[in-house]
Design a protein around this nucleic acid. Structure first.
Length: 299
DNA sequence: AAACTGTACAACCGCAGGCAT
DNA sequence: TATGCCTGCGGTTGTACAGTT
C-alpha cells in the first residue's frame, strides 16, 4: 500500500528511555488511558515515535508485569504453547499475563532455543529431519486434539494453584487468577474505566517509583542507565514485592486464535506437539507422559 | 589487567490486519 | 471497492554486562 512511516523520522529520539520520559508517558496514560498512541508524542512533547511509546508501555511500564527469571512452570507453559502455536508470542503471552510477548520471545530465543538445539543436536537427525508434513485438514484436527490435551495437562499442572474449574473461554484461567481477580480484564486498550483504571495506574506508579528508586541507587555509579542492556535493565529487574499484588489479567480471557488461516506464516518454526513428544521420548523422558510433567532438567 | 567472547534484553523495523471513510 | 491510517505483531539488531582466556 506504500504506507508512510508511522512518524516523522526527523527529530525522533531513539534508543533507551530515560526515567524522565517514562514518567511523562505514565503520567499521560494515567490521564488519558492507553491507546491513541499517535497522539501521545504530540500531547506529551516526547520526541518519540508513537510505536515506541506503545512498546515502552506494553513491554515495560504497564502494571502487573513480572520481570526476572522464568519459573519452571512458566518455562513448561511456554514450551507447550510454542509447540501448539508456533512463534505467536502475543498469543502465548496471553496465557502468561504477567509476561510480555517480548519477554517470552527473548526467553525463547536465548534460553529455550539453546536447550532445544542442544538436545536436537545430540539427536543427530534433528527436528526437521524427522518431521513429516501433514495435510492441512489433519493438521487442524490434530491441533484441536493437541489443544484439548494441552489444556488438560496444563490445568493439571497448574491446579495446585487454583483448583477451580477451567472455563472453556479461559483455558488457563487458573494461572491468570494468581493475580487479583479482575472482572474486567485490563486489556490495555480497555482499561480506562474508573476503578480498574485506578488500580492499574496505581500499580503503574509503583513501577515507576521502583524504577526511580533503582535509578537513584545506580546513578551514583559511573554508567548512566540510559544505556542498553544491563545498565538499562537495572530499572527492569523484577520486583522484590509480591508480583501477584500488582498483577492483573491482561487480555487473559482471550483464547488465542489457533486457526491456520490466522497464522502469519511463522508457524513454520513451530515444533509439532506430536514431534515434541516423540522427541522427548527419544530423550528418555518417557512415552505417554503428559508434556506438562516433562522434566525440564532433561534440557 | 586487558582483550576477547558470549549472553541478555530493550528497542527498532517492517509488515499485516482491522477499521473508517 | 479502494484507499489511508492506526495498531499490533514478530523478526532482528545493538550494546551493556558477565565470563573466559
Amino acid at each position: 500500500m506504500g504506507r508512510p512511516p508511522c512518524c516523522d523520522k526527523v527529530g525522533v529520539k531513539k534508543g533507551p528511555w530515560t526515567p524522565e520520559e517514562d514518567i511523562i508517558l505514565v503520567t499521560y496514560i494515567q490521564d488519558h488511558g492507553p491507546g491513541n498512541w499517535r497522539a501521545v508524542p504530540t500531547n506529551t512533547g516526547l520526541m518519540r515515535c508513537s510505536k515506541s511509546c506503545r512498546l515502552r508501555w506494553m513491554n515495560y511500564l504497564r502494571p502487573g508485569i513480572k520481570r526476572g527469571n522464568f519459573t519452571d512452570q512458566e518455562e513448561r507453559l511456554i514450551i507447550h504453547l510454542q509447540a501448539l502455536l508456533g512463534n505467536r508470542w502475543a498469543a502465548i503471552a496471553s496465557y502468561l499475563p504477567e509476561r510480555t510477548d517480548n519477554d517470552i520471545k527473548n526467553y525463547w530465543n536465548t534460553h529455550l532455543m539453546k536447550k532445544l538445539k542442544k538436545l536436537v543436536g545430540a539427536d543427530g537427525g534433528g527436528i526437521s529431519a524427522s518431521y513429516q508434513p501433514i495435510s492441512k485438514g489433519q493438521w487442524e484436527r490434530r491441533l484441536q486434539t493437541d489443544i484439548q490435551t494441552a489444556k488438560q495437562a496444563l490445568f493439571e499442572a497448574l491446579s495446585f494453584e487454583k483448583p477451580d474449574t477451567l472455563p472453556e473461554s479461559k483455558p488457563f484461567g487458573g494461572y491468570c487468577s494468581l493475580a487479583e481477580p479482575n472482572p474486567n480484564p485490563a486489556d490495555s486498550s480497555a482499561s480506562t474505566t474508573t476503578s480498574t483504571a485506578a488500580a492499574t495506574y496505581a500499580s503503574s506508579t509503583e513501577n515507576i517509583s521502583r524504577l526511580l528508586e533503582k535509578w537513584t541507587k545506580k546513578s551514583s555509579s559511573p554508567k548512566p542507565p540510559a544505556g542498553k542492556g544491563r545498565a538499562n535493565s537495572v530499572s527492569t529487574q523484577h520486583s522484590d514485592t509480591n508480583p501477584g499484588e500488582s498483577a492483573f489479567c491482561i487480555d487473559s480471557a482471550t483464547t488465542p486464535d489457533v486457526s491456520p488461516e490466522s497464522s502469519k506464516g511463522s508457524s513454520e518454526a513451530q515444533m509439532p506437539l506430536e514431534l515434541l513428544e516423540t522427541w522427548l521420548f527419544d530423550e528418555g523422558v518417557g512415552h505417554g507422559q503428559e508434556l506438562a510433567d516433562l522434566q525440564l532438567d532433561e534440557f
